[in-house]
Each structure stands twice: as structure tokens, then as C-alpha cells.
Simulated scan of single mutants.
Amino acid sequence: MSVRLLLAESVSSSTLTTDRLVATAAAFVALAGAVTGALALARASRRRTVVALSAGAIGVLVGVLVLATADGGPGTGNGVVGGYAAIVFGLAAVVLGGLAVAHSRRAA
């Protein structure tokens, strides 16, 4: 009985659920923040630094929210994989943005 229940709760990998959409959007925002943070570190820009820090924080917060509300693990349609990706990319963006801030303060 529990095997049937477990199989009934999982969805196809190609099915786009609301949770997967939110988690994927958060992962893309966080990834864009990480890329912007790397660019801010390469060339000092206050705007890029703010974008990297903001996008990273948003990615982490939404990723944590997705994981906190998930009912199951990967493959259940709850956006768990995207939530973890958003957290990883968001933390990378925050770290790169922080390094860019520290670098710009040393240069000034």
C-alpha cells in the first residue's frame, strides 16, 4: 500500500508544477546574481555589487521557503532540487558581492 501511495505522489520529470516554477525562477535569479557578483569583482561597480547582493539574498530566501514548504523529496514536484540550487547560487552571489564590496573599499 505504501509503495502505491509513494508512486502516486510523484510526478513526471517534465511536469512543470507551481513549486518547480518558483524554485527554478529563484535559482535563475540567484545565478544571475552570482554572475553579476563575479563581474562586480572583476570591475568595481556599485550597481553590480548591489544587484549581486540583492539577487543572492532573494535566491537564498526563496530557496529556503521552497524547501520549508516541500512535502517530499526530489521528484515529487515540490521544487526541492531548484530550492537547493537557489540556495547554493544565492550564497555564491552574496559571497562574490561581499568580496566586491571589500575590494572596492580597499581600492578607495
Score class of each variant (00 low, 15 high):
residue 18 T to R: 08
residue 19 D to F: 01
residue 54 S to N: 02
residue 41 L to F: 07
residue 31 L to T: 00
residue 12 S to G: 10
residue 19 D to A: 14
residue 38 A to V: 05
residue 30 A to E: 10
residue 20 R to P: 01
residue 51 V to C: 13
residue 25 A to V: 14
residue 12 S to A: 05
residue 52 A to W: 06
residue 45 S to H: 11
residue 46 R to Y: 07
residue 27 A to L: 03
residue 51 V to S: 04
residue 16 L to D: 04
residue 42 A to C: 03
residue 41 L to S: 07
residue 39 L to A: 10
residue 38 A to T: 10
residue 42 A to L: 14
residue 18 T to N: 15
residue 44 A to L: 14
residue 39 L to E: 12
residue 45 S to A: 14
residue 33 G to H: 12
residue 13 S to K: 12
residue 35 V to M: 07
residue 34 A to D: 08
residue 54 S to R: 13
residue 53 L to V: 12
residue 27 A to C: 02
residue 41 L to T: 09
residue 39 L to P: 11
residue 34 A to E: 12
residue 12 S to F: 01
residue 49 T to P: 07
residue 29 V to W: 08
residue 50 V to R: 02
residue 19 D to C: 02
residue 38 A to E: 04
residue 36 T to C: 00
residue 36 T to Q: 06
residue 38 A to H: 01
residue 24 T to F: 08
residue 41 L to R: 08
residue 44 A to S: 15
residue 30 A to D: 04
residue 24 T to L: 10
residue 36 T to F: 09
residue 38 A to I: 15
residue 47 R to N: 00
residue 47 R to A: 06
residue 52 A to S: 14
residue 22 V to K: 07
residue 32 A to R: 06
residue 35 V to E: 00
residue 46 R to N: 09
residue 47 R to L: 15
residue 28 F to N: 13
residue 14 S to P: 06
residue 26 A to I: 04
residue 49 T to L: 03
residue 35 V to K: 09
residue 34 A to Q: 00
residue 29 V to H: 03
residue 45 S to L: 07
residue 32 A to Q: 00
residue 37 G to D: 10
residue 19 D to W: 03
residue 26 A to T: 06
residue 51 V to E: 03
residue 34 A to C: 15
residue 28 F to G: 07
residue 51 V to L: 14
residue 25 A to R: 09
residue 40 A to I: 02
residue 54 S to F: 00
residue 35 V to W: 02
residue 48 R to C: 11
residue 37 G to C: 09
residue 52 A to M: 06
residue 14 S to N: 11
residue 44 A to Y: 05
residue 31 L to M: 11
residue 33 G to V: 04
residue 43 R to L: 06
residue 41 L to N: 05
residue 43 R to C: 07
residue 50 V to K: 03
residue 28 F to Q: 12
residue 25 A to P: 10
residue 53 L to P: 00
residue 37 G to N: 07
residue 30 A to F: 06
residue 14 S to W: 02
residue 14 S to T: 04
residue 54 S to I: 13
residue 27 A to P: 06
residue 18 T to K: 14
residue 21 L to A: 15
residue 46 R to P: 10
residue 48 R to V: 08
residue 44 A to V: 00
residue 32 A to M: 01
residue 40 A to E: 04
residue 26 A to Q: 01
residue 40 A to K: 10
residue 18 T to A: 15
residue 12 S to D: 13
residue 18 T to M: 03
residue 21 L to P: 10
residue 16 L to M: 09
residue 29 V to A: 14
residue 17 T to P: 04
residue 42 A to P: 13
residue 42 A to D: 06
residue 36 T to S: 08
residue 19 D to T: 03
residue 41 L to K: 04
residue 40 A to T: 02
residue 29 V to P: 01
residue 46 R to V: 13
residue 21 L to N: 13
residue 12 S to C: 12
residue 39 L to C: 10
residue 28 F to R: 11
residue 25 A to I: 09
residue 25 A to N: 09
residue 38 A to K: 02
residue 37 G to H: 02
residue 28 F to K: 00
residue 15 T to N: 11
residue 45 S to Q: 12
residue 33 G to C: 01
residue 25 A to D: 02
residue 53 L to M: 12
residue 45 S to M: 04
residue 45 S to D: 14
residue 54 S to M: 12
residue 21 L to D: 08
residue 51 V to G: 06
residue 18 T to S: 14
residue 54 S to Y: 10
residue 44 A to N: 12
residue 39 L to D: 13
residue 44 A to K: 15
residue 49 T to Q: 07
residue 39 L to F: 15
residue 50 V to E: 08
